[in-house]
């Protein structure tokens, strides 16, 4: 990434839920790329993970509370990324954002591959790091095998 994105499909206003390793990284990259970013986390101390260049807003609170999402102005967001460490929080926040706040683009991280498959079938955009890693490992193995033969 790096540098401003001028693409008109690039989200202007992004809400990131969860400021762990992934959330803080995403928030930093999005903010560098020119999006306005609001990041939410239950624990204020976790904002320490944000890069110093991060220029967005921080909200301390539990995103499964409607009030916190309202405070983050989720209704005017172009995109919401739910990346806390809890699958159920991510799934609920993603669905609230999509159904109630009508956010056009919503994605949730789901560790449990089985739960991920179910919610994916329900029509929710999910990302399973477990499955992605497994796929990547297998693909790499396969490649290694090809080189040798």
């Amino acid at each position: 990434m790096g540098g401003k994105k001028t693409d008109k499909n690039w989200p202007q206003y992004v809400v990131v839920v969860g400021c762990g390793r992934l959330g803080s990284l995403l928030a930093g990259l999005l903010s560098q790329a020119g999006s306005s970013v609001v990041i939410i986390d239950r624990d204020e101390a976790s904002f320490a993970l944000l890069a110093p260049e991060f220029s967005g807003f921080r909200i301390t609170g539990d995103a499964v509370e409607m009030e916190i999402l309202q405070r983050a102005k989720v209704h005017s967001a172009d995109c919401l990324l739910a990346v806390t460490g809890e699958d159920n929080v991510n799934l609920m926040v993603a669905q609230v954002a999509h159904e109630l706040f009508k956010v056009p683009r919503v994605m949730a991280r789901v560790f449990d591959p089985r739960r991920e498959a179910i919610y994916h079938a329900f029509g929710i955009e999910t990302v399973s790091p477990t499955k992605l890693s497994a796929d990547f490992f297998l693909a790499t193995l396969e490649k290694g095998g090809e080189e040798k033969s």
Partner: peptide, 16 residues
Amino acid sequence: AYDQDNLAVCQIARRW
């Protein structure tokens, strides 16, 4: 005691 867990339980039970 957690809304997110109750929602997930109900959704998976009902729809899956």
